[in-house]
Design a protein around this nucleic acid. Structure first.
Lengths: 146, 146
DNA sequence: TGAAAGCCTACAAAATCAGTAGTATTATAG
DNA sequence: CTATAATACTACTGATTTTGTAGGCTTTCA
């Protein structure tokens, strides 16, 4: 029951881009170095995001990546649903809320998982990239005040 | 990001026992057949629970298993923390709330995971075996009323 | 004393994770 | 028009986890 590096790295990359918003397209090499993540591995994760509207890409010389939307309109839930495939916490339930298991009609535990799903998705959908950037800035300011 | 069969089977087994409370020790064979789970596999999951106080065991002839506590005092969170090892959603954080990653001091995404952890644990700790049994009974009653 | 139960340990197929590697394609500067 | 700097695509791989099977051992009671 873990979120994989795929989702964690994607989030870190997008937060990095939100942090450097307004600097145009940023090369993956730069991000990989700043975040200390294998560039080759990131290369595999990134296309998942470019296929949606949250990440824009430019190939060739001086190419790179740029956020496609306002960080305040990109939620963590959105990012993780793309990179983790799905946030469904059990195989008993598939993405559209329908269920697959033959026992589902009478399964007393199914409502537990459905509720857990909702709690997780609601929480992750409530946090935007902008929230993360803002909170980090606040954290930094507090450090200075000590 | 999934809860494994280990946790799901353990929960189903304990709900089954809660359903048949007052019938003394119940053989694993019976539970495995009722729940359609491999008895041999259940055998491996069960010792995790007997080591805690939620499940009592009796060996030998007419042995079996019995809940060790009132179902109203056994939470889903308790069961899953035992069987899934931990409910921590990322490797960045370990069970006692301390963190392992070298980037943790400045990691802007860490609070997101800490918050997700709290949301998940709070939800799962809020549901007891008795809640599940009650809700299933209600569901059954509603079916009859239609 | 024998049958019914749980206990313990080893093994293994399949899936998933976390990358590495190499090649192809695209875009721009000069 | 070509060298270069960047992304895109695809294949492979070692390690770990998941989901069981299998078999023998021990305990309890009729």
């Amino acid at each position: 029951m873990k979120i994989s590096t795929k989702g964690r790295y994607a989030l870190r990359m997008l937060v990095d881009l939100a942090d450097h918003r307004g600097e145009g397209y940023i090369a993956l090499k730069t991000i990989a170095e700043r975040q200390d993540i294998s560039k080759k591995y990131l290369e595999q994760i990134v296309p998942i995001l470019t296929r949606s509207d949250i990440l824009l890409t430019n190939r060739g010389f001086q190419g790179g990546y740029m956020l496609g939307k306002d960080p305040a309109h990109i939620t963590v839930g959105e990012i993780l649903r793309l990179t983790e495939g799905s946030l469904e916490i059990v195989n008993c339930i598939i993405s559209d809320g329908r269920n697959t298991c033959s026992r589902s009609a009478d399964c007393p535990t199914l409502p537990v998982w459905a509720g857990l799903n909702k709690v997780i998705n609601d929480y992750l959908d409530s946090i935007t990239l902008q929230d993360i950037v803002d909170q980090a800035a606040e954290h930094f300011a507090n450090d200075y005040m000590i």
